[in-house]
Amino acid sequence: MTVSARDLAVLTRFSGRLFWRDRAAQSTSVGLFLGLGIGLPFLMDRLRPGRPDFVVDQHVGVLTMVLVLATFGQITITLTARRDQLLLKRMRATGLADRDILGGEVANLVVQGTGLAAVVSVALYALTSLPVPRDPLLYLLAVVAGAAVLCLLGTAFTAAVPRAELAAVMSMPVFLLSGFGAGGFGPLLQMAPEWVRAVFELLPSSAVAEVARVAYAADGSLVGDLQAAAVPALKLAVWAAVGLAATARWFRWEIRRP
């Protein structure tokens, strides 16, 4: 294990400890994740019994939406607060590399997001007619890659947030648009004009939902799955590159000097 990998592991664990001490973070990132992630598909299952395809659509849409909340939203809030309180500056005063400080936060939220997605999925398998994904590995990849890319984008987004108090408000539109695009509010996008659908399909959250739907599709093969997931995977890769480049260019480690 290289020194950097050790630091990354230390920081991931440290970020996790801080997260689980933060009641506000738990109520939004965990409470809303589980409440909406389980509640809405459960409701759909009761309203449309015997239609597991509806439950899959609802589950994937809502899961993508709450994943945005628990990754993009949470990292925006956490990093702007630590930036404004000069905690990031204090951490940089140690020998830790910048990439490890940010990487630890990203890794923690990816682990948490994946864990929460697992809890939601297992609860729905037990409580509703939601089937287990045909390709569970692809489903896992969609969640992990999606969480990582959304965290990177949230990290870059902090540069646009002038004060920590505005972080939640400013990340809310991203949460709502992602939910709309991924089908978290139902099949609203199908009623939108073609060009609107085309724009929403470019979102990273839509790519996550697309890969997850491939994993849940009743029919398919490994080769077919890989072909179907290639385009959304490419979209995620492009968004990851955008997130990394924007972070390298604009990320602020401390409050702006007057």
């Binding site: 000069l86 905690l87 204090r90 005063a93």
Partner: peptide, 8 residues
Amino acid sequence: MLQEAGFF
């Protein structure tokens, strides 16, 4: 030891 830096 910075003049200004936060703690958790």
